[in-house]
Structures are given as structure tokens and as C-alpha cells.
Design a protein around this nucleic acid. Structure first.
Lengths: 114, 114
DNA sequence: TCAATGTTCAACCAAAAGGTTGACCAGGCC
DNA sequence: GGCCTGGTCAACCTTTTGGTTGAACATTGA
């Protein structure tokens, strides 16, 4: 895994990191503040932040010995663009199929998986 | 990693799997067809498909000895909802900050990271 | 019936991920 | 200077991941 998109998806594949992003969405926080709710050491949280940082999802500031973490929301665009592109494509295809079946007078497709 | 969202993000964190999703967006394909472009064995591709399937991103059909793979685009919603929620929140906060600074007559915030 | 085709299963391997503990370093506060 | 406080680095461990090879299984076609 080396490309940007892979790093972003991988970063958000962990519940703790996703939760941290959720909290950062409502304001910056220090490492200790972020670590507090989780049953892991602060070192582990520090590692998680590194992953988020390398994915470009957060940046870290400097405030005395504190390192306030800040969410960079722009990176989300990368993902949504990727997702939307293929979803739209897939949905269009699906719709075309429906139209074809309709033209043939067949009972329309019933959503694949329940 | 056990929850649905984690599985979906993790599944898309791999370039090969993302590429397979991209190809499936324009139509179903068999395992061998999907495997063809990559420098890995068909068994490895079979494993990748299992990951995508367990994330709910694809389903597999049955056609003689073939197992056509079909993209389930609905799962994308899960992700986009999550992403959009926190992006919006973060952006609103950012905008409010701008307004406050403007009221104070300060030079507006210049986008965090370059 | 028997071989070829398409796919999966099982065992194994190396590397990466997520966690731990312990040492370390930098800034404020007496 | 000495010592908390906040955070990171390093070494280590276990589990997961992505890949391999080799065998198995089901279905179709000759």
C-alpha cells in the first residue's frame, strides 16, 4: 500500500481511527485528550494518529509540549470522488438493464441481494 | 475489524480490489476474467473477491462452473453517508471560524495545509 | 466415461498492523 | 537546577494480510 487513496481507505478501516476523525470533526484535540476514551495506551493512539497523518487526514500543530491534532476535511473529496464515480456508473448500468427488461415486457429486476 | 463499515473501507484499501470494483462497475465478470490483468495467481484473486464479498460489495452467481461476480453499489451509501457527515461538520466549523475572525477584523484563515 | 475448465480449499510463508512496555526528550513550573 | 507533563521512539510480540503452491471439486464437452 503506497498510493494516497489506499492510505486513506486503510486509515478509516479502523474503528478507533474513524472515531477519532469523528471527534476531530467538532474541534481540534491533543493526543492525550484523544486517547482518553479508549482502552489502549497513549502510545498506541500516537501510532493511530501517525497513520491518519500519513493519509493526509490530519495535521499536527505545536503548542508548548502539546501537539494539537487538526482534521483536514479536503482529503474526503478524494474518496467521495472515487466512490461516486463507480456508484454512478454501476447504477446507470442497472437502470439501463431495467429499461431493457421493461421493453421486453419482463418483470423488472428485483434487487440482487436481500 | 468486525463491523460493516470497517470491512468496506478495508476492502477498498487495496489497489487490486479497488481496480476490480472499478471494472465490475461496467459489468459482471468471472473470476478468471477478473484475474487476467494482474500479476498474481487466480487463487489470490479468489481471496480478494472473498474480502469484497464479506464487505458486501459484491455477490457471486452461478453459471455452470463459472461464478460471475456482481457489484452491489448500495454499500457505497454506507461510506458516503459516514464521510459526508463528518466532512460537513468539519467544514461548517471551519466556516464559523472564518466568520468569527472576520468579525474580529482579522485576516481570514489561510487554508491549513498547502 | 473421461479429460478439460473454472474455481475453491488447505497449508504454508513473509511482511504489515496493532498492541505492549520502557526509555527518552522537550517545555513549563517551583 | 530539578521535576512534572505531553508526546514520541524503539524493541518486542501476536494476529492479520496478501501471496504462493498443490490438491480437490463440480460441470461441461467429446
Amino acid at each position: 500500500m503506497e498510493d494516497r487513496l489506499s492510505r486513506v481507505f486503510a486509515a478509516l478501516a479502523d474503528p478507533i481511527r474513524r472515531d477519532m476523525v469523528a471527534r476531530l470533526a467538532s474541534g481540534d484535540a491533543t493526543v492525550n485528550e484523544l486517547a482518553e476514551p479508549y482502552p489502549v495506551t497513549v502510545q498506541a493512539v500516537s501510532k493511530h494518529l501517525k497513520v491518519l497523518e500519513e493519509a493526509g487526514l490530519v495535521t499536527r500543530g505545536k503548542q508548548a509540549q502539546r501537539r494539537p491534532v487538526h482534521l483536514e476535511a479536503e482529503v474526503f473529496d478524494l474518496m467521495t470522488k472515487w466512490i461516486e464515480r463507480y456508484r454512478r456508473q454501476a447504477e446507470e448500468r442497472y437502470q439501463r438493464l431495467d429499461e431493457v427488461l421493461l421493453e421486453l415486457g419482463q418483470p423488472r429486476t428485483e434487487g440482487g441481494a436481500p
